[in-house]
Amino acid sequence: MLTSLSNTKKEVAEMVLVKLTESLLPNPFVDPTIQETTNPLHNAVLSEIRRKSGLNKNDISETAKTAILKKLSSELSDLVLSVDKKRNALNRIQQKRTFNQFLISYEFEFAKFEQLGMTKLEIEDAISNPDLSEHLNEIINIDEDKSTMIFVKELKNKSNDETYTLLVHVERNADILMFSAAWRIFSSDVVRNEYETPSELLKKFIDKKGLFFKISKSFKKKLVIEETPFLVASPIVNPVLAVKIIDESRETYLCLAIRRVPSVNVMKVRLAYVMNITSYKRSLREHGFKIAD
């Protein structure tokens, strides 16, 4: 999207692009113009397009008009083809892509999940042979070096033949997938929809098993799943210190994937939630999984 429209609502941005396009299209009753208008936003868009197209600000030739129309049309098409549609298209590609060539790193939180009965073999199988996978980052690019990824795979419980879903999410850094979390999701907790994406399944699961938290002075929430900026008191060394769990009386697990903004009191959060481990353990035991206390 054009920088001049980056902080504008989608509907307003569409209207600006449509109005500017209409002003340049042939009209038997009106002479098309690319002169400045009385609308500051319109002028900002035109100035940015001229700059990016290498056009002089005073150029009103047919060549300049054609170049501006082409850029307006491209921007409007990108806006109409929403981020959700682009992401869905990416997900369809991702479903066909295997991740056998990636190194999986367990250097952070895996011990916690071993205590919950999870094995590396199960995690690696879900990543290498997922039923579905999804990038969470807004940049629609399957070769994005750094992103959060979710994998889901339907499995059978060996003790009772019950079907459940294993959901794994990782932080991708180039060719390394850094393990973040893995959850067994049972139909008694979450009713699955055959058309839902991995992130939609995670949302439903956190709605059921998650706890409220706050980041810095934000409103309380159960989940952050789109990259969101949060103001913090000062540039922080440990981002976990910016998170306040509302109910600290239960055993919890904090998932926090961030992107720091250097020298600025802003922390961009890609994924954040607090799992109620007390409730999750209860579900595991109810479904026949033996886990440590």
Results as ranks from 00 to 15, higher is better:
N173C: 13
E162Q: 12
S105A: 13
F151Q: 04
S218L: 06
E248K: 12
E194M: 10
K156G: 00
N27G: 00
F108W: 08
K220W: 09
I206M: 10
I49E: 06
A272I: 00
T21H: 07
L155P: 00
E134A: 04
A174M: 15
V170G: 02
F213L: 02
K65G: 01
N7T: 05
D175I: 11
S188A: 02
F113R: 01
Y253V: 07
I104K: 10
F102M: 08
I291H: 07
S133V: 04
R97M: 14
E226K: 09
T252D: 00
D189A: 05
I139T: 14
F186W: 09
K221R: 15
F289R: 02
E200R: 09
N173V: 15
I140D: 03
V170W: 05
E48D: 06
L223S: 04
S188C: 00
V274T: 01
G117F: 10
E122D: 14
S23R: 13
L41P: 12
K57L: 10
E109W: 04
E286D: 11
F230Y: 15
E194R: 13
E138G: 03
A126Q: 04
I140C: 05
K222M: 04
I49T: 01
L166V: 07
K10T: 06
I142E: 12
D161L: 10
K290G: 12
K281Q: 11
L202A: 10
I123K: 05
K10D: 09
I258C: 13
L284E: 02
V237D: 11
D131A: 06
T98F: 12
K268I: 12
R172N: 02
F99N: 15
V30H: 12
K112T: 13
E171N: 12
K10R: 10
K70Y: 08
S4N: 03
M118V: 11
E144P: 06
Y253C: 07
N88H: 14
K156S: 09
T37Q: 11
F205H: 09
N137Q: 13
E226R: 07
K52D: 11
A242N: 03
I140S: 05
F108R: 06
A257D: 13
Q95W: 14
I140V: 12
L167Y: 03
D189Y: 01
E62S: 11
Y106S: 04
N173R: 14
S4G: 02
K156R: 07
A174W: 15
S133Y: 06
M275S: 09
E124A: 04
N100D: 13
L155Q: 10
S180K: 10
L136R: 00
L41G: 07
S199I: 15
N193H: 10
D175G: 01
V266I: 15
F230E: 06
S61Q: 00
T197E: 08
P130N: 05
L79N: 03
I60K: 11
V269I: 05
V152R: 09
E75G: 06
E154S: 10
S61R: 04
V264G: 05
A182N: 00
I104T: 12
E171I: 08
E171V: 09
F212P: 02
I206A: 07
H169V: 03
Q35I: 06
P28E: 03
F186S: 00
N238E: 13
G210M: 01
L103P: 03
I34T: 02
G210T: 00
V261W: 10
S283H: 06
R87N: 13
P262E: 01
K217W: 11
L55A: 01
T8G: 06
L202W: 08
R259E: 14
E134Y: 14
